[in-house]
């Protein structure tokens, strides 16, 4: 079942760049990474999905409903954490939970307390007295307290310490295993690599690629270092699928294109002294997309 579906979604506003022809399909129960550099249009896309902005062209549906016309119904089953989270300064964590509970017509206190214990959050403090990280934790608790079908998190780990990031990842993973869908906007490559099942990369408002992480890993090159046994072997012509970056003495280092097996077969019978093959280098691949090397 598709939880978020956009088709040719375009939104331009003012002087800011929006999104152009965005097509997304977010399956139920997935942790979906929405990646892109700052200003790529991630937040604009989220705002269209939540009904804050009207699409200029195309369609956007969440939980099978039109985002602009049926936003209220959609938001019943959505938990949202804005990228630049601001909360009412006069509220305490507890009064914020109670207020959102009253708006939603639910008692959020039991689950909210459980979440705040997990994130080590003191609910009795006023928002105005909270640090940025603490406010972020409260924002997460408020977004997750009603156990929504869809969690939309816009750069949620900003200002969270590594331990809290880990707890959040664990919680999101558990939610996804239980059927919750997480739409996770980020510009942190390693975070998306650790957490997400699928990833969409946007650049300058356009979708660059949309794949499962497993497919991306297959596409990503491996970093290879070869040390030849003798000086003579250094003269060997490298295969086309190995991009050599360094050639110092008896050592080659470079990026492997395609499967490792092919390279291992190529090495067969050659005089190697040492060989190391690193894990798939997603970061390089992401940078390649970020900087305009990928298909658009």
């Amino acid at each position: 079942m598709t939880i978020i579906q956009t088709h040719q979604l375009t939104r331009t506003y003012g002087r800011h760049r929006g999104i152009e022809g965005l097509g997304l399909d977010v399956p139920r129960g997935s942790v979906y990474g929405f990646l892109g550099p700052n200003g790529a249009g991630k937040t604009t896309a989220i705002r269209v999905l939540l009904g804050f902005l009207k699409p200029s062209q195309g369609s956007a549906r969440v939980l099978g409903r039109d985002c602009w016309r049926e936003g209220q119904t959609i938001r019943q089953d959505v938990g949202y954490l804005p990228g630049d989270l601001r909360l009412y300064p006069w509220m305490t964590g507890e009064s914020a939970l109670r207020w959102i509970g009253r708006v939603r017509g639910l008692d959020l206190m039991p689950h909210g307390r459980e979440l705040s214990d997990e994130f080590v959050l003191d609910l009795s403090r006023r928002v105005s007295q909270m640090s940025r990280g603490t406010r972020q934790k409260l924002g997460l608790v408020l977004a997750m307290a009603h156990a929504p079908k869809l969690l939309v998190l816009d750069e949620p780990t900003t200002s969270l310490d590594p331990i809290m990031q880990q707890r959040l990842h664990r919680r999101l993973r558990a939610g996804a295993d239980g059927g919750q869908t997480v739409f996770f906007s980020s510009h942190s490559l390693s975070e998306v690599d650790r957490l997400c099942d699928r990833v969409a990369i946007v650049r300058e408002g356009k979708l660059v690629t949309e794949q499962t992480l497993a497919t991306l890993r297959e596409q990503a090159g491996h970093w290879v270092t070869v040390r030849w046994r003798d000086e003579k072997s250094v003269g060997i012509e490298p295969p086309a699928f190995l991009r050599l970056m360094q050639r110092e003495g008896r050592t080659w280092a470079g990026e492997l294109d395609g499967p490792v097996e092919r390279f291992v077969s190529w090495l067969e019978g050659k005089p190697i002294e040492d060989l190391s093959i690193g894990p798939p280098d997603l970061e390089t691949l992401f940078h390649h997309y970020y900087e305009g090397g990928g298909d658009t």
């Binding site: 939540l50 009904g51 804050f52 936003g71 209220q72 119904t73 938001r75 019943q76 959505v78 949202y80 804005p82 630049d84 989270l85 601001r86 909360l87 009412y88 959102i100 708006v103 939603r104 924002g139 408020l142 977004a143």
Partner: peptide, 17 residues
Amino acid sequence: DRGTIDIALGLPISRWQ
């Protein structure tokens, strides 16, 4: 201006309401 509109509009309330 205060930046709280995102939190408020993220809730299941219509603008008319």
